[in-house]
Design a protein around this nucleic acid. Structure first.
Length: 592
DNA sequence: ATAGGGTTAG
C-alpha cells in the first residue's frame, strides 16, 4: 500500500487505519502517522484514538502514550483505551492516575470527561490488580451514582474486586443483584469462592448454574477444579476431568495445569503425572504444579529428578516458585544436602531467579532439618532480609525436634516479639522446655499464652466417602453419627495402646487433669475422620483424610499405630504436606 | 473505536 503523494482526507485515513488494526500492522500505523505530519494534516480526536488503539494492539505502550499526550482534546474512548492499555500490561498505578486525570480533565469551567461502562470495567480491574481495594470502593460509589451499576461487565469486575479483597459476602450481593448472568460473571463468582477457600460454596454454585443451563468455558472449569483440589474430592474430580475430556476444552494448558494440581492435592500423583506427561506444551506452572505434588508428598528424589529434567530440556526456565518448591521438596524429602547445593548454584547463577525471604526460609528449613542449628542461626543473621515469623518458626521447630534449648530460646524470643498472638508458638516452646525439664520456663510460657493469644482457626478434618465430603470438628457434638464414631475412636485407642501407643498429653494446651487431656486428644478431628474411614472405607483402599491445620504429634502417632495394628494405608493431607502412613511409619520421617 | 472472569509456590 502506498500513501505517498495522495491527498488524504479523513475517510481515507480512517480506512487505512482500519486495515492496519485488522492486520495488527505497526509499520502501517507508523507510515500513516508520518504521512499526516508530512502533509500538515491535523487528525481529529477520532483518528488519533484509532492510532492509540492500533499501537496498543501492537503492544507498544510508549507510542500510544505519545499520541495520547499530543492530543489537545480527548474523549471518553481515548481515555478508556489508554487506561485499558496500561491495565492489560499490569501498569495499574499508571492506569489509575490516568483515570483521576480523566475525571479532572476538560476545558476550564467545564466538567471532566465522564467515564462510561467501558471505563469503569477496566479501571476496577486496575484496582483489583494493584490491590487498592479502598480505592475500588470509592470508584464503586461513583458507579452507584452512574447509570452503569447493573451493567454486566461492570458488575463482573466489581464482584471480582470484592472477592479478591476477601469480602465474598459483598461479592455475592452484587452477583445476585445483576439483572442477567453470563459465563464471565458466574466464573468470577465461582473463582471468588474457590480462591478464598469456600470450596463447597463454589461447587454448589457451579452445580446450580449448570442445572440452569449456564455455558461454561475453560476458565470456569479451571476455577471449579481449584475448588475440588481444596476439598480433595477425588471422585468428583475424576468425574469433572472426564467431562472435560469429552468437551473441546481439554487442550487449554491452564485447565490441564489445574488438573495436575487437583490430582496431586487429592493424593493421586499417578493421575497428575499422566496429565503432565500427555501435555504437548507446558508452561512453568505445569512444572511447578507437578513438582509441588511430589514435594508435598515428601518424594524428594522425584522432585530433584524432575527439576533436572526441566533444566536439561531447557524449554521452560524455572522461576522463583519453581525454586521454592524444589527447596521445600528437598526439605520434606530429607535431601538436605542436595537442596543446599541447588540453592548455592542458583545464587551463583548470573541471571537466575529473584530470591525472596521465602527462599531463605527454605534454607533455614534444610539446615534445621539437618540438625545444623547454629549454622542456621548464623545464616539468618547474614541473609539480606529481615527475618520474619516464618523464619524463626522454622528454626524453633527444628530446635524442638533436635532438643536444642539454647538456639530455641533465641528463636522463640524473636518469634514471640513478632507473633505474640499465635498460640502454636507457645506450645512448641513449652514442649522444648518440658523436654529439658525446665518447668519454670514452661509455667511462664503458659501464663504468657493465656494472656496474649487469640483464638485460632478451629481445627477440622474431612474425608470423601460415597460422593459426599464428610467434615468433622474437634470433639464434634453435632455429627449425626457421633456416638458410633466416638466409640470407634475409643476402640482404636484401646487396641493400639496394647501395641505400645501412649497419648502425648504434653501437646494439650488446656490446664486440666490427665483424664480430661486424653479425652480432648481423642476428640481431635483427624481421629474422628480416621475412625469414620475405618468404619466405611473398604479394606483394600487407603484412607484419605484432609486437615485444615497442621496435624498434631499425637494424632500422627495414633495414625501410625492404627496403620500397623490394622494393616491399613493412611494418607493425611495437612496444611503443610501429605503424610503417607504405612505399617507404623510415615514418609515424612516424623518431621513436618 | 474503548470493557469483565483463569492455573503453580509457602
Amino acid at each position: 500500500m502506498s500513501i505517498q503523494g495522495l491527498d488524504m482526507k479523513f475517510k481515507d485515513y480512517d480506512a487505512l487505519l482500519n486495515e492496519c488494526v485488522n492486520q495488527k500492522s505497526l509499520r502501517g500505523g507508523q507510515r500513516v502517522q508520518a504521512h499526516m505530519i508530512k502533509t500538515h494534516y491535523h487528525p481529529p480526536v477520532y483518528l488519533r484514538t484509532r492510532l492509540i488503539v492500533l499501537y496498543l494492539k501492537c503492544e507498544v505502550l510508549s507510542d500510544a502514550r505519545m499520541v495520547f499526550d499530543e492530543m489537545r482534546e480527548r474523549n471518553v474512548v481515548s481515555w478508556t483505551a489508554m487506561i485499558s492499555g496500561y491495565t492489560k500490561s499490569g501498569f495499574y498505578s499508571e492506569a489509575l492516575s490516568l483515570f483521576v486525570q480523566m475525571l479532572r480533565s476538560g476545558t476550564p469551567g467545564v466538567t471532566g470527561t465522564y467515564p462510561n461502562e467501558f471505563t469503569f470495567a477496566t479501571v476496577l480491574t486496575s484496582c483489583t490488580g494493584a490491590h487498592v481495594f479502598e480505592y475500588g470502593r470509592q470508584i464503586h460509589s461513583l458507579i452507584v451514582k452512574s447509570p452503569f451499576e447493573l451493567h454486566i461487565y461492570v458488575g463482573s469486575s466489581l464482584l471480582d474486586l470484592y472477592a479478591k479483597a476477601g469480602n465474598i459476602h459483598q461479592a455475592r450481593i452484587i452477583f445476585d443483584g445483576l439483572p442477567e448472568r453470563d459465563v464471565v460473571s458466574c466464573t468470577a463468582m465461582i473463582s471468588g469462592y474457590a480462591q478464598l477457600g469456600f470450596d463447597n460454596e463454589a461447587l454448589e454454585l457451579f452445580c446450580t448454574l449448570q442445572r440452569e443451563g449456564m455455558a461454561s468455558n475453560y476458565v470456569t472449569y479451571a476455577s471449579i477444579v481449584t475448588a475440588i483440589s481444596g476439598l480433595a474430592a477425588f471422585e468428583y474430580g475424576k468425574q469433572v476431568h472426564g467431562h472435560v475430556l469429552r468437551s473441546e476444552l481439554s487442550f487449554f494448558i491452564v485447565l490441564q495445569n489445574s488438573l495436575i494440581d487437583m490430582y496431586s492435592k487429592c493424593g493421586n500423583l499417578t493421575y497428575g503425572r499422566r496429565v503432565f506427561e500427555k501435555m504437548p506444551e507446558r508452561t512453568v506452572i505445569s512444572w511447578n504444579a507437578m513438582l509441588a505434588g511430589y514435594s508435598k508428598h515428601g518424594i524428594g528424589k522425584t522432585v530433584v529428578d524432575l527439576y533436572n529434567r526441566m533444566r536439561e530440556e531447557n524449554k521452560i526456565k524455572p522461576d522463583s516458585a519453581t525454586l521454592l518448591t524444589v527447596l521445600s521438596g528437598c526439605s520434606h524429602g530429607a535431601m538436605e544436602n542436595i537442596g543446599l547445593k541447588i540453592f548455592d548454584e542458583t545464587m551463583a547463577e548470573k541471571n537466575g531467579v529473584d530470591l525472596s525471604v521465602e527462599h531463605y526460609g527454605c534454607v533455614v528449613d534444610l539446615l534445621g532439618r539437618a540438625g545444623q542449628l547454629e549454622r542456621a542461626l548464623r545464616f539468618i543473621k547474614e541473609m539480606p532480609f529481615e527475618p520474619n515469623a516464618a523464619i524463626w518458626g522454622s528454626l524453633l521447630g527444628a530446635c524442638r525436634v533436635h532438643k536444642n534449648v539454647e538456639v530455641g530460646k533465641i528463636a522463640g524470643d524473636r518469634l514471640l516479639e513478632i507473633e505474640p498472638e499465635n498460640a502454636g508458638n507457645y506450645v512448641i516452646l513449652c514442649n522444648l522446655y518440658a523436654s529439658e525439664g525446665k518447668w519454670d520456663e514452661v509455667r511462664k510460657m503458659r501464663e504468657l499464652m493465656k494472656e496474649k493469644t487469640v483464638l485460632k482457626e478451629p481445627g477440622k478434618s474431612w474425608i470423601e466417602f460415597g460422593r459426599t465430603v464428610h467434615t468433622f470438628y474437634a470433639s464434634d457434638r453435632l455429627h449425626p453419627r457421633k456416638e458410633e464414631i466416638f466409640s470407634k475412636v475409643r476402640e482404636l485407642s484401646d487396641r493400639i495402646k496394647a501395641a505400645g501407643y501412649s497419648p502425648d498429653l504434653s501437646s494439650v494446651l488446656y490446664d486440666v487433669d490427665e483424664e480430661q487431656k486424653e479425652k480432648l486428644l481423642l476428640g481431635h478431628s483427624e481421629k474422628l475422620a480416621l475412625a469414620f474411614g475405618m468404619m466405611n472405607v473398604s479394606e483394600a483402599k487407603p484412607i484419605r483424610i484432609m486437615k485444615n491445620l497442621r496435624i498434631c504429634v499425637d494424632c500422627h502417632n495414633f495414625a501410625k499405630f492404627v496403620s500397623k495394628v490394622y494393616g491399613r494405608e493412611v494418607f493425611i493431607r495437612d496444611k503443610s504436606r501429605f503424610h503417607h502412613i504405612v505399617n507404623g511409619m510415615c514418609l515424612c520421617g516424623d518431621y513436618w
